[in-house]
């Protein structure tokens, strides 16, 4: 089955990476969440980050997006050493992230959430104000592109369905992710149509030269769009494989951390 063949795949571009993470360690008190992880993202590729629950994937991408400061290790952004002290810094450098918890404010409207922190304005000097019409229009359009027709842009995010909310977060990151787009399990709550939209969007932005980091527990989704695959296990990398160097079965075994998958009833076997 090669349903994935409809996606473009970067021929492992031999260009300099946009961001290079070297030997990243992250400790929380006495808990070692990351024990030296190296990872890089090149323009126009989709680099999948895979691994078991608690492997450290979310922690790792949070060091990339300015949420956590690594305990040790180096971050090179476009060749220069970089230390993002806030997510805002990372965003200004062109890194947009869909966090696993989505980073949405339930009491605020879809539009206000969409532009939170990067609101477009009109007018000058003291009369500078939010450009509400443009904000509403962009939010609605971007959502429609992802396959969700919102009822109204001023609906509170708290009243959206789980998948709708996830789509707002994805649409927001796609809209603002100028150089790097990080997606932490973006399809966990999505319907079939919306999932294929997200995968198609990854493909689209990759063609525009954006580097994508894609975290997923679904091997088929990863195989469909990934150019490279890095597997994390217990805070360390098990290695990085290029597309074509590894089969879904091998990848699935690595993702399980080398442990046997529970034997499934015959009728369920092979469909995970």
């Amino acid at each position: 089955m090669t349903a994935d063949s409809k996606f473009h795949h970067g021929e492992a571009p031999d260009v300099a990476p946009i961001i290079e993470m070297q030997n990243i360690e992250k400790h929380f008190g006495n808990i070692i969440a990351l024990a030296g992880v190296s990872f890089d993202v090149k323009p126009g590729e989709c680099h999948c980050l895979l691994g078991d629950n608690g492997a450290g994937k979310s922690t790792f991408i949070k060091t990339m997006s300015g949420v956590h400061k690594p305990t040790s290790g180096q971050i090179l952004f476009e060749g220069k050493q970089m230390s993002f002290s806030t997510p805002r810094d990372a965003m200004e450098a062109g890194i947009a992230t869909v966090f696993q918890d989505l980073a949405m404010i339930p009491l605020m409207s879809v539009t206000r959430n969409f532009f939170m922190g990067r609101e477009p304005t009109k007018g000058v000097g003291p009369f500078k104000r939010l450009d509400m019409d443009r904000m509403n229009e962009i939010a609605m359009t971007e959502m429609r592109e992802m396959g969700i027709n919102l009822r109204a842009p001023d609906q509170a995010v708290g009243t959206l369905s789980g998948g709708e909310r996830q789509t707002v977060a994805i649409a927001r990151a796609v809209h603002f992710g100028a150089k790097i787009l990080i997606l932490d399990e973006p399809t966990s709550a999505l319907g079939v149509r919306q999932t294929s939209n997200v995968l198609a969007t990854i493909d689209k932005v990759r063609k525009q030269g954006v580097g994508v980091v894609f975290i997923s527990h679904n091997v088929r989704h990863a195989m469909a769009v990934g150019d490279r695959f890095t597997v994390l296990n217990r805070g360390k990398t098990l290695g990085t494989a290029k597309r074509g160097e590894i089969t879904s079965e091998q990848l699935q075994d690595l993702m399980a951390g080398g442990q046997e998958l529970a034997k499934l009833e015959g009728s369920l076997g092979g469909t995970v």
Partner: peptide
């Protein structure tokens, strides 16, 4: 104003979304 609502609604989410 948007940042004030966001900071009060969920400081962590707001900060992750780029609100100072």
């Amino acid at each position: 104003g948007n940042w004030i609502f966001a900071a009060g609604g969920d400081a962590n989410a707001a900060s992750n979304a780029g609100v100072p």
